[in-house]
């Protein structure tokens, strides 16, 4: 029991540090992340440049910090919009039932048939490369899961006696949704959301890596890895640092997600 709570504290502390970095990145960064200094290119790790410099002489530490804002910030934005679209959709579809629900399920099924990455790649193919379009594409992939989850929770709750009681007592649909449904949906959605954050970060980084996301010179972890691949011999640290950053952040969110899942005791009810 002791080491569990210790692990929990560790996760919370790292999350707090991450939040701190995210918000204060521009102030902590010692250099301008996009400033090119050709005479300082590919410098190793030193006191001046904590993580060295890249092929254009830009400070890697500053780029990692501001890159966190792009990568992690965009993932939160994606999650937020997906929740905003998906949850109400699912709530209404499940609550109203009937024809609307059937049509809705068809749309959801069509989305679910395709693997996330294929849909995101195809959508950013239609929309064109760029960070904004990438966010849009991933939202279109992700909202479905939340809609589906919210709907399934509503469907189980709807059958219970207390909802019938509320209806008999003349409670309005809006109030039933607000007072009874939303609290039930929240816990489930929170777990799915924390488990999703890691996946979204990986997706942004991967798609940026292949050139569909953030465009240079914007600092983004995946795009940084793409730029680093020409320097395997001279500066392998350029490739190690962004990758480790991605891995650590995703790992933290995955641990938090696992913890929340045990805490709320929800089974993976995506299906």
């Amino acid at each position: 029991m002791i080491h569990r709570s210790r692990a929990r504290i560790a996760v919370i502390v790292t999350l707090a540090i991450l939040a701190f970095i995210l918000i204060l990145a521009p102030y902590i960064a010692p250099f301008d992340p996009t400033q090119v200094k050709m005479e300082e290119r590919l410098k190793p790790i030193s006191m001046e440049h904590l993580l060295g410099t890249d092929h254009l002489g830009r400070d890697v530490f500053s780029r990692i910090l501001t890159g966190a804002q792009t990568t992690v910030g965009a993932s939160f934005l994606i999650l937020f919009i997906s929740l905003l679209v998906g949850v109400p959709f699912g709530l209404l579809s499940g609550y109203l039932g009937g024809k609307i629900d059937r049509i809705f399920m068809r749309i959801v099924d069509a989305f679910m048939t395709f693997p996330d990455y294929i849909v995101a790649i195809i959508l950013s193919g239609f929309l064109g490369p760029g960070m904004f379009n990438l966010v849009l594409a991933i939202v279109m992939v992700k909202w479905v899961g939340y809609a589906r989850l919210a709907r399934s929770v509503v469907l189980t709750e709807k059958q219970k006696d207390y909802i019938s009681m509320a209806k008999i007592n003349g409670m309005s649909s809006l109030n039933i949704l607000r007072r009874h449904m939303i609290p039930h949906v929240t816990g489930n959605v929170m777990v799915l959301a924390t488990l999703d954050i890691g996946k979204i970060i990986l997706m942004i980084a991967s798609l940026s890596y292949i050139g569909l996301g953030a465009q240079p010179p914007a600092p983004e972890w995946g795009a940084m890895l793409n730029e680093a691949k020409g320097f395997f011999y001279n500066a392998p640290q350029l490739m190690l640092i962004p990758g480790l950053s991605i891995m650590m952040v995703v790992l933290i969110f995955n641990l938090l997600g696992d913890y929340l899942r045990d805490h709320f005791d929800v089974k993976n009810q995506k299906g």
Binding site: I210, L251, N254, D258
Partner: peptide
């Protein structure tokens, strides 16, 4: 856990 956290391209 690690496999789910490492970007495959990395």
């Amino acid at each position: 856990l690690i496999g789910a956290s490492v970007p495959s391209f990395w």
